[in-house]
Design a protein around this nucleic acid. Structure first.
Lengths: 226, 226
DNA sequence: TTTTGTTAGTAGCTGTTTGCTACTTTATAT
DNA sequence: ATATAAAGTAGCAAACAGCTACTAACAAAA
């Protein structure tokens, strides 16, 4: 039987062809009370002119997380935001040009932060309404529609048991704002009184209030211990 | 600016070195009321003599799921069991020989099924107590200890909101057996009465009972609608 | 044949959480 | 002043979780 060492020698002599590895980036935000995602318009075939997830190839001396951070910076123009690995997509024909295995990463950001920097660097990047995208016949490049659907599902699930909702808000926010974010992410309405009881464990008061609205002002809060 | 097409041409001419892609397999089972995992003993350096996760390289015309199924068959000797993708590990130095990106898969199986076939094919594969492994100073090859810890965490979480516990049992089982599986996976005891109320929604009675034990017999159940 | 040990299975109390309705409060606009 | 609109609170009922204590049914020992 062939030893592992011999096997690896042959493997590396390109007797075995290696797939390419890329990271694809799902940068989510909330704008105008809708969940949105950053997509770029493809300039070349295949799928020319169609929206696609931004992505980069993984460098040989680069971790996956590093590649993801670089991709978010290069393609969406932002740094320092929350991201986590989502899933790895490895179907054989998913890219018609060559075998590409894609490690998808999900990133969540406040829309103001996103807009501020995105304008400067990447003209191609645009915000798309996620639910509209997924519920319509609209076509996306590669298997990216499937990947986005998976991302939306992950967001919904994680909203239930983690605190990712805060990633979409500025440092100081009102409770109605926070509740609205939860409602958008979960896709259903919540009861105000119950929501406030649970949320109160995660937040602390500031002494600031909203003003100027034609109704009772709302207190501003921030996240507790973090 | 270089076009995508030109970039890809260069990329494929090995001006860019590609990482290798493997799948590593976490085959979990329950034996003697303990969560266990299939590990093989490494025969060659690096980490010679140390336990390691079974794994295979991903073929250029093979999906990740196919590679995982093949790996489970080749290395653990079983087919047709539950598995799901866990996480993709891409640190640069995780394999000292070369850059290998590892897509880990988690597989759950009843211990009888595992033992039955595993004996025939793979002499190297052995069952290791997961908690003992993770709570001791015991060393594993590569970053496999970290991967197993991640797998145990996934099992704990999924036990809360899904029905993976059933994967560890035969088709017919008693409620005390089912509760014990949940307790092992969650790492804590549960209240019998509460457990039975919730479990009753997922199972249906058979007309069989256990017998021969020096105590009251227990009814056998099976999973509902599946 | 009775007793003992052991596990299967049930009853039911208590406190917390969730679903839900309805109210009070405080700002601006008319 | 009055209307409107959203912020924030009170509180009930049903469901659920935490927990204790019971009864039921078997084999083996006495």
């Amino acid at each position: 039987m062939e030893s592992e060492k011999e096997f690896l020698k042959n493997y590396n002599k390109d007797e075995y062809e290696k797939p390419s590895v890329a990271v694809d980036l799902l940068v989510f935000t909330i704008e105008n009370d809708r969940l949105k995602i950053v997509l770029i318009e493809r300039a070349e075939p295949p799928f020319s002119g169609m929206p696609a997830l931004p992505g980069v190839f993984v460098g040989i001396n680069e971790t996956l997380d590093e590649a993801a951070a670089r991709g978010i910076a290069e393609e969406a123009g932002i740094t320092g935001i929350y991201f986590e690995q989502l899933y790895t997509w490895g179907d054989v024909g998913r890219d018609p040009r060559m075998r590409i295995i894609s490690v998808s990463y999900m990133s969540l950001a406040n829309c103001e932060k996103l807009k501020l920097i995105a304008g400067k660097r990447t003209s191609a990047a645009e915000l798309y309404d996620v639910d509209e995208l997924l519920d319509s016949e609209c076509e996306l490049a590669f298997d990216h529609k499937k990947i986005i659907r998976y991302g939306r599902e992950r967001i919904r699930n994680k909203t239930e048991y983690s605190n990712i909702a805060f990633e979409f808000l500025p440092d100081e926010f009102t409770l109605p704002q926070l509740q609205k974010v939860y409602e958008i992410l979960l896709g259903r309405t919540l009861y105000k009184a119950n929501f406030r009881k649970k949320a109160s464990l995660l937040i602390e008061e500031t002494d600031k209030m909203t003003s100027g609205d034609a109704h009772r002002p709302s207190r501003l809060y921030r996240r507790k211990n973090q």
